[in-house]
């Protein structure tokens, strides 16, 4: 056939032109991305590298580091070094702080899920023109500095605070219940601080929920609880996963809340790390603790997302 040759020639020229255009597009894409990449590199990866390097150095006497390689920081995390004969004995002190922090962060996550889910459902079931007002009210506390808000919580739960005073006034108790400077105080503070992070992603997925599916489930003999369990929760799964991650991570590394409400006695990881760069003057140990925290978070998140992704089939 005579017209095959010119056609393949055209095809080849077309392919060449396309290749050139795509090459140019690729170069252009990297150029446009470069500012963002530079910022991520400079302010994201570079500090992380410093932390990693410092965790393998020796502490300087007045803070900072001496440039001598050492794995002491990681050893110290699990063992006590005897001052006299340098032998190592296992110590759970720091592991306990980690465990306590994870426990408190998990508790705060579950607590805000229990409070946040009905809240988000309530907002999502409002008429569209009222929802923004409710969302605004949810985010309103963010307009005030976290430190100030934590002090406010402190005023509410202290022995002379409104909770204890009103309980005494109603005659339910005659001695103030000591909430302040306990794990309960930290728990309350964490839930208060991070609740909006739970409500917003939950709202985002509940808002997309097709309420006709809820009706269909009611019609098929599902009671209210069964509708919640078999239809609403599975459909809201992406929001639940996102909300839990958004609350758990900052709660685990919280600093101000345990510092003020725990009175500095009830340490969380955040306080432990801060202490190493301050009073204890052990920068390598602080850096090591921060990295261990990061690895713990990354591993648990990977497991969590994999597990919940499989359950929910990634749908909804």
């Amino acid at each position: 056939m005579t017209d095959v040759t010119p056609q393949t020639a055209t095809d080849a020229r077309l392919a060449e032109a396309r290749r050139q255009t795509m090459g140019a597009a690729r170069r252009r894409r990297w150029q446009l991305l470069s500012p963002a990449l530079l910022i991520i590199g400079l302010f994201g990866l570079f500090p992380l590298t410093i932390t990693l390097v410092y965790s393998f150095l020796s502490p300087g006497s007045y803070g900072g580091v001496r440039w001598e390689f050492s794995t002491d920081a990681y050893v110290q995390f699990l063992f006590d070094r005897d001052i006299f004969d340098d032998t190592l004995s296992f110590s759970a002190t720091y592991l306990n702080i980690f465990a306590r922090s994870i426990g408190l962060a998990l508790g705060a996550t579950i607590g805000s899920l229990i409070i946040g889910f009905p809240t988000a459902y309530f907002i999502a079931s409002k008429p569209a023109n009222q929802r923004n007002l409710w969302l605004f009210l949810i985010t309103l506390p963010f307009w005030v500095n976290l430190l100030i808000r934590t002090y406010a919580i402190l005023l509410i739960i202290r022995d002379e605070g409104i909770i204890n005073l009103s309980l005494i006034w109603t005659g339910l108790i005659d001695q103030p219940i000591g909430i302040l400077y306990t794990d309960t105080a930290i728990f309350i503070g964490l839930i208060y601080s991070y609740l909006p992070f739970m409500v917003l992603p939950l709202y985002a997925s509940l808002e997309k929920l097709d309420f006709r599916l809820v009706e269909a489930a009611y019609d098929l003999y599902a009671s209210r609880l069964q509708v919640l369990r078999h239809v609403i929760v599975p459909m809201a799964k992406p929001g639940i996963v996102a909300g839990c991650i958004l609350v758990f991570i900052p709660a685990l590394g919280a600093y101000i809340t345990p510092d003020l409400l725990g009175g500095g006695k009830q340490l969380m990881i955040g306080n432990l790390i801060a202490l190493q760069f301050g009073g204890s003057r052990n920068w390598p140990f602080g850096a090591a603790a921060a990295l261990i925290l990061m690895v713990v978070v990354m591993v648990s998140l990977t497991v969590y997302v994999r597990y919940s992704g499989k359950e929910g089939n990634g749908r909804g």
């Binding site: 097709d210 599916l213 009706e215 269909a216 019609d219 098929l220 239809v231 929910g312 749908r315």
Partner: peptide, 26 residues
Amino acid sequence: VNTVFQSYALFPHMSVARNIGFGLEM
């Protein structure tokens, strides 16, 4: 009494068989 909805309202997170068995399951 059961309804066939205009939008069908099938549960997207369930298989065809589970959808059909849903009423009996509940």
